[in-house]
Design a protein around this nucleic acid. Structure first.
Lengths: 224, 224
DNA sequence: GTCTATATTCGGATAGAC
DNA sequence: GTCTATCCGAATATAGAC
């Protein structure tokens, strides 16, 4: 097995395990067993368990942020430099939700891993939040430009709530499914994105509901 | 030191530590050092680290749920058995937020501890979610009765989003404060509760904004 | 570069004195 | 009931053979 293959196998295995359990609960032995490599390989390739986590987190957030940013750019171009609030929110919300609900297990695990890791209090993560910070500020700026008459405070709260709904949906969809007795369809990505975007939009513009409102008696599922 | 004092000291110390760091990161040695008791005391009084966590979690959620339930009851009485959606949401949202932002450090820690613990994958917690489950179903039922013409699916999604905003605000208020450059005032409890209730309300009724909408240019802080 | 075997640290639990 | 001292297992990290 080549060096790259080994590294990838470790990253992939770690991601899958950390998507379901917390940092401390997943041991390096769990990881190497799942990756089919030797215990020493982790320290050889990454230095330590902490650094493996940091590397993986940076790797995944970089890709996710690029995707979000590309959608934001596209919205700006389409809106001739004045993207709608809805388009900005979509750029923020869609990528993590599409990842999370992707049929590709790896992509799905990546989304859950990131939200889990972002609340981890382990040292290496703390250093990375700055990167995430600047990323979110871009969205805050875009929203301020789209809502020039709105109080900045409301903008930040709206962003905060949007992130809250993303996180809860990515990490705790199981509870919603059980609570609703299976009524809420967690497979209909478009419906979920629409709900989050719509709610965040209402929070931002003050509940006037100018964005496509939810149908009064929409069925929980449209696809599948 | 009496038996009760020792138990309380352990619970209090554990709660403060688990409010900031995850289960695995806080060791029993950390806890007994903070509590000023001996290492063996934890096993003597609680049996194990896992059971300490479970006991603490049950203890705190019991009190919180009672508070939520009392507010719900009060809303039902005031509304002659037909509480408004806003009143129901307030009963759900207010208690954890008031705890979290209380000047009492212990109350504040309790709120953060609960939200942290509820996503912990450690065995003993899993057994307790059923209790939380029934508790949430009461609120779902109340909302269904208050919105008889609304699709049940929408109700559950609204509840889901309300819980998401509560959690994010309790655990990640620091990021919002930094992101907003200190603009968002995390000390004005009433303002925060109103924002969450209002947004959740919009999600539930479809963004018609019948609940006291946020003032267009509200200052971030009203108190302090 | 990879792997086996091992060193070392650390944390949860317990035995037994007081 | 409380505390000291200790055991034991587990987990990270590393040394050194291949």
């Amino acid at each position: 097995m080549s060096s790259d293959q080994t590294k990838t196998a470790i990253l992939t295995a770690a991601e899958m395990l950390w998507a379901e359990r917390s940092f401390g609960e997943v041991t390096m032995r769990d990881i190497v067993a799942a990756a089919g490599v030797n215990l020493a390989a982790v320290n050889y390739h990454f230095g330590s368990k902490d650094e493996l986590l940091a590397d993986l987190f940076v790797s995944r957030t970089t890709v996710l942020n690029r995707e979000r940013f590309a959608e934001l750019k596209a919205a700006e171009i389409e809106g001739n430099g004045r993207p709608s609030v809805e388009a900005i929110l979509r750029a923020l919300v869609s990528p993590p939700l599409r990842w999370c609900l992707s049929p590709d297990q790896q992509r799905s695990a990546a989304a859950r891993f990131m939200t889990r890791a972002s609340v981890e209090t382990v040292p290496p993560i703390k250093k990375i939040v700055d990167r995430e910070f600047r990323h979110l500020q871009r969205f805050a700026t875009a929203l301020r430009l789209a809502l020039p008459h709105r109080d900045e405070v409301d903008i930040y709260w709206g962003l905060h709530f949007a992130l809250a709904m993303i996180r809860q949906t990515v990490t705790d969809s199981e509870r919603l499914k059980k609570l609703s007795g299976g009524l809420c369809d967690l497979n209909d990505v478009d419906d979920i994105i629409r709900r989050i975007v719509s709610t965040a939009h209402d929070a931002l513009v003050g509940g006037t509901g100018t964005v496509t409102p939810l149908p009064a008696r929409a069925s929980g599922s449209r696809k599948s």
